[in-house]
Nucleic acid binder design. Sequence first.
DNA 1: GTTTTTCTTGATTGACGAGTCAATAAAGAA
DNA 2: TTCTTTATTGACTCGTCAATCAAGAAAAAC
Lengths: 194, 194
Amino acid sequence: MPKLGMEPIRRAALVKATIEEIGAVGNLDVTVSNIAKRAGMSSALAHHYFGGKEQIFLAAMRHTLAVYAAEVRSALKGAKGHRARLEAIIRAGFTSSNFEPAVIAAWLNFYVLAQTSADAHHLLRIYQRRLNSTLLHDLRPLVGGRADHAAGRIAALIDGLYLRQGLARTSAEQSDATAQVIALLEMEIGARVQ
Amino acid sequence: MPKLGMEPIRRAALVKATIEEIGAVGNLDVTVSNIAKRAGMSSALAHHYFGGKEQIFLAAMRHTLAVYAAEVRSALKGAKGHRARLEAIIRAGFTSSNFEPAVIAAWLNFYVLAQTSADAHHLLRIYQRRLNSTLLHDLRPLVGGRADHAAGRIAALIDGLYLRQGLARTSAEQSDATAQVIALLEMEIGARVQ
DNA sequence: GTTTTTCTTGATTGACGAGTCAATAAAGAA
DNA sequence: TTCTTTATTGACTCGTCAATCAAGAAAAAC
């Protein structure tokens, strides 16, 4: 009973299932069969729509990144002033949706893949550049010439804390990571040193 | 012609070959056969000495961590005063030996493995705790009650910058990462805020 | 109502890899 | 010398998985 217009539905289901499956397995040794099964279809269909395993994973990662970008945009909506905007950006990185084990697993494996896959590397760069320039935009008015270095530190601290929190077994409050980055932000703003 | 006492030699060769192979492949889909070939022996012998693939990889990671710990210790030898010791610790994390692509690949895959392997997770915690307490030891005299948070930020920034630099295609100077962390250190020391 | 397009899968292919085992060989112990 | 321990490997087992293909079935187009 082939209903027409299934492609977008199937693709979305596969993307969702891929993230879930990576979360369940922990690494990229997920099988196309299992992803397809989780999405309620045959592995042949998954190949039909995506071509191959890596393309399925890249689509899943593109989706994760898009969700994250939407969260940042939405958080920026209600923020007035440079300082408030910076805090909103920081907070968006540590929302609970980003801390679902499956999302963390996807990120870690994404880093691994970025070493060898040009597509994955490209995608990663887009994320990094976007974070950097968003920070820069609101840092420049506050710290002037130091903005470049400050943005680099804040972005790296976000990544580092995400890594540590994601790998911590204890689900210690995520608010702590947010507070740590905001503390850095305060120092950056308050520092008189060049 | 079995010479006796080969075990430590074979183990060391396998550990070295494992890191090289992970560097070459980029992920943990390295085969025991290829590792063994690189180390100049049969795959059966690798199994004989280590038992299985994961144990080979854990031994390689233990070695990487031990090398890093030795670098920190050695850097601390010549450092007088808390500030100098802190800088030495920071610098040790960004030495060129830590930036060999094979070592970076090993670290990234180690993070992935730490999600599902209790042994890997345990090993990772040892690294994190050691870094934290080493920082704490010299931070406390300088920043008092803020030492805990400061150490967390510095450690996370080290990890985050390592991640970013390791994944950057351009081999932009590592000294930059060091400078970024030292800049944070200066802010931590100079900050008057609690 | 026939043809074409879209959707779907079972079955198959072809390859690869972890781990085991039996067998060989040297060195030392008894 | 005979026995045991250590070293070593080729061959094999057993399983897995990505990717392909031929074929069926429903909708839409003609």
